[in-house]
Amino acid sequence: MNSFWIYLLILAGSTYLIRAIPFAAVKQKITNRFVRSFLYYIPYTVLAAMTFPAALYATGNIYAAAAGLLVGAVFAVLEKGLTVVAVASCITVFAAEALL
């Protein structure tokens, strides 16, 4: 008989420790150039890998999603800020799905 509480403990506990241990443990500035470079690139590669191609299938329609991403990218290149870009993407998807 598996208990919800034990599942929850494993789920929440392991997720927390994976995040907190490295955050608390690494106290010094890392000087190794390779590691520093790796850590510089990692945020962007994580986001890129999460966005493409998954975002294309996040809405009901692949073309609407592509249009939303494209409009978002234009606003993003113009440096309009996170909220504006996110809202512009959503409105584009909503409009595109209504039209298609």
């Binding site: 986001l47 966005t51 975002a55 978002g72 990218a73 309009k80 996110a86 993407s89 998807v93």
Partner: peptide
């Protein structure tokens, strides 16, 4: 798409 739009913005 909000969350992905945000990624693109970053």
């Amino acid at each position: 798409l909000a969350i992905y739009g945000m990624f693109v913005a970053i």
